[in-house]
């Protein structure tokens, strides 16, 4: 391994880290703007042009707030909870292919922090750990509402992870690889997986909502019943971490949706652009295309949140176990039959 590679990867990691943070920050701004748009309001418009400095102002405010700690026997766990949530939200981005190759100073730079063969499994693993942040925080708060939120979050994660995994199996049967780069490259041009796996995509989308604790699956923190759910007792930047992790998760799951089902950085006519304008231009357009897809999904998340009510706990479980899991198993069977018949 040459030192240039290390430098290159280090720079790249810092960049995607920064981009993830930036996207999460501006998702909070976008959330408020989208909500305002859907509700005939103006939204934040005081800090900066169009309220663009609002996320900074929010962050500063959260840092300046007094930190309150409940009288809990688990001060350490209370402290660890938001950290775990934040860390897991940020490390998922390591395996995501942000673009194709770039030629810089004669070096071929692959726009991915690491291309491991089991990147999909890695993502699933990290997302599963994500619930520990909520669990630990909710449990250590020593508050019944927090505990309820934590228990809800845990059972919701467990149930929906099953359906999510099953919906991915159908995709893997087609792609034959767990590597996100391989899956992306198979969707070259307009050959996106969503056209082959519409049901799988829908199941994955619903589960992604549940995994990120967004409405209609935001039972872990639903403010109307559990006050704030697992982060009821949190204040200052610890709460900021939880909220921030939610938006980072939303960004990451939008990215995964775009990569797995909507072709990642692929776009129609990319070969033509590559030949006529050069591969670097094609790659840069690819990155832009990926971010457009991601933003579209983030908007979709917000659109749903500000439109429909949330489920009740038992209805959520019914949907997960009685509808989504059988549906995804049927999807696997149909995919298998199609692969047998057409390949």
């Amino acid at each position: 391994m040459d030192s240039a590679l290390i430098i290159e990867k280090s720079i790249f990691i810092v960049v995607i880290f920064a981009v993830t943070m930036l996207m999460a920050m501006y998702s909070t701004w976008a959330e408020r703007k989208v909500a305002a748009f859907l509700q005939d309001r103006v939204g934040p418009n005081r800090a900066g042009w169009g309220g663009l400095l609002q996320p900074l102002a929010d962050g500063l405010k959260l840092f300046a707030k007094e930190e309150f700690e409940p009288n809990t026997p688990n001060k350490f766990l209370f402290f660890v909870g938001p950290g775990v949530a934040m860390a897991t939200a940020l490390i998922t981005s390591a395996v995501i292919p942000w673009g194709d190759k770039l030629e810089i100073f004669g070096r071929t730079v692959i726009l991915q922090a690491t291309d491991i063969d089991v990147s999909l499994l890695y993502i699933f693993g990290v997302i599963s750990v994500g619930v520990y942040g909520i669990m630990i925080g909710g449990w250590a708060s020593n508050n019944k509402f927090s505990l309820m939120g934590a228990v809800r979050a845990a059972s919701q994660m467990v149930s929906y992870e099953v359906a999510m995994g099953l919906s991915i199996i159908a995709l893997l049967m087609m792609s034959g690889s767990l590597s996100l780069r391989a899956i992306t490259e198979q969707q070259h041009g307009m050959d996106w997986n969503v056209f082959y796996q519409p049901v799988g995509f829908l199941i994955f989308l619903i589960c992604a909502f549940a995994e990120t604790n967004r409405t209609p699956f935001d039972l872990a923190e639903c403010e109307s019943e559990l006050i704030g759910g697992y982060h009821t007792e949190y204040s200052s930047m610890k709460m900021g971490f939880y909220l921030f992790a939610e938006y980072a998760n939303m960004f990451i799951s939008s990215t995964i949706l775009a990569v797995l089902y909507f072709g990642g950085y692929n776009y129609p006519g990319m070969d033509w652009v590559g030949i006529h304008w050069g591969t670097n231009i094609a790659t840069l357009i690819g990155i832009a295309v990926l971010f457009v897809k991601i933003c579209a999904f983030i908007f979709f998340y917000m659109w749903v949140r500000w439109t429909i009510p949330r489920f009740r706990y038992d209805q959520l479980m019914n949907l997960g176990w009685k509808i989504l899991i059988p549906l995804s198993i049927i999807n696997i069977m149909i995919t298998g039959i199609c692969i047998l018949a057409f390949k």
Partner: peptide, 16 residues
């Protein structure tokens, strides 16, 4: 009632 079921938008529509 909408807010309590988690749908906030209807509330703001009619609260104007």
């Amino acid at each position: 009632l909408g807010v309590d079921t988690g749908a906030y938008t209807g509330f703001l529509y009619v609260f104007q």
